[in-house]
């Protein structure tokens, strides 16, 4: 049994934490949800003076159970496809009032890669001073794990099952960052819940910068990916260490920095933990070829972004999550 701490009210403690947390507990996310963690980390880095526009998706649903809300900042949900348009309007109104309140959009990969892409493009083209954060869990999880244009090649979803002729999703993951980059916005980056200090630094950068900023946050979904909730961070970390999900930064569409990989791991280490890739470990020619295909895609990422580390660095894939006694990593 956990020893009782005399005179400590856990309820009161929630609002006495050393960092502002814009997302309260009691939300309805599944155990081990990467997106819930990601959203909270993002709100910590933004601070309390912010307005969030949320596209339809898991995050919107699990944080707004009538009549309560998990949000501790002003928050609005309108539709799946128009969150960037809503944010653009909020930003313009705040600008007209001369206020400095930050405007942030949060959406999933469905709302960003697919349904809301045109309004996102418009917001970026008009260069609104808004940070767009996409929590990328690589399928429509809220509606029952349907494929999105972000679902990786060969992953199983309910609409891309392993069947007679196909080994999971036929198509490739959309290179959204290249599309975002083509808008020549001041700042765009990828991040992951497995490296929270890197994530927070990128949120702060996106907020500080004048103009549109975009952040793609890799967020494991235990339910949709088929892994143990306890492994969410492990899975997200392996996505980086294998080169499967490259961590990069872009300024005006040009790659300006990457998180180097000190010890490159085989993609099988990442895939094996997830049910959505289990069919790739069958004993068949198709499985072997598709497994190798994913390895080649990761190798391609490593090659085009120059991810392989020449020498150990404190910000590379091994150094960036090093902890120090007394929580020094977070200060």
């Amino acid at each position: 049994m956990e020893p009782k701490r005399e005179g400590i009210s856990v309820a009161a403690l929630h609002h006495q934490q050393p960092a502002f947390r814009g997302l309260d507990a009691g939300h309805m996310a599944c155990p081990g949800c990467g997106q819930a963690l990601g959203a909270r980390l993002v709100t910590e880095a933004i601070g309390p003076d912010a307005i969030i526009a949320n596209a339809t998706g898991c995050l919107e649903v699990f944080t707004s159970m009538w009549p309560r809300s998990s949000w501790r900042v002003p928050w609005i949900h309108s539709l799946f496809e128009n969150a960037p348009a809503v944010a653009s309007g909020i930003e313009a109104a705040l600008k007209a009032q001369g206020r400095q309140t930050k405007v942030v959009v949060m959406g999933g990969d469905g709302g960003t890669f697919d349904i809301g892409l045109q309004s996102l493009s418009g917001m970026l083209e008009r260069n609104h001073n808004v940070l767009y954060v996409c929590f990328d869990n690589e399928a429509y999880m809220n509606t029952g794990v349907q494929r999105s244009s972000s679902t990786p090649h060969a992953a199983m979803t309910t609409t891309s099952p392993r069947g007679e002729t196909r080994m999971g999703k036929r198509h490739l993951k959309k290179d959204l960052l290249a599309i975002i980059g083509a808008h020549r916005i001041p700042y765009a980056a990828t991040a992951t819940v497995a490296y929270p200090s890197d994530l927070r630094a990128k949120v702060r950068r996106g907020i500080e910068i004048e103009g549109a900023a975009f952040l793609l946050v890799h967020s494991p979904c235990p339910l949709g990916w088929g892994h143990d909730g306890a492994d969410s961070i492990e899975v997200a970390r392996l996505a980086v260490q294998t080169g499967f999900f490259p961590i990069v930064e872009m300024e005006r569409g040009v790659v300006a920095g990457v998180m180097k990989i000190r010890e490159v791991r085989p993609v099988a280490d990442y895939l094996r933990l997830q049910d959505r890739f289990q069919h790739l470990f069958e004993d068949s020619r198709e499985a072997r070829e598709e497994l190798q295909h994913l390895q080649e895609l990761a190798d391609h990422n490593i090659e085009v972004y120059g991810l392989r580390a020449d020498e150990p660095h404190p910000r590379d894939s091994e150094g960036a999550d090093t902890v120090r006694r007394g929580g020094m990593r977070w200060s």
């Binding site: 996310a29 949800c33 819930a36 963690l37 909270r40 980390l41 929270p196 120090r324 990593r329 977070w330």
Partner: peptide, 14 residues
């Protein structure tokens, strides 16, 4: 060792 990992990585602020 008070590294803050549990506090930082809990999706439920618990």
């Amino acid at each position: 060792m008070a590294c803050d990992n549990c506090w930082t990585l809990c999706p439920d602020n618990s």
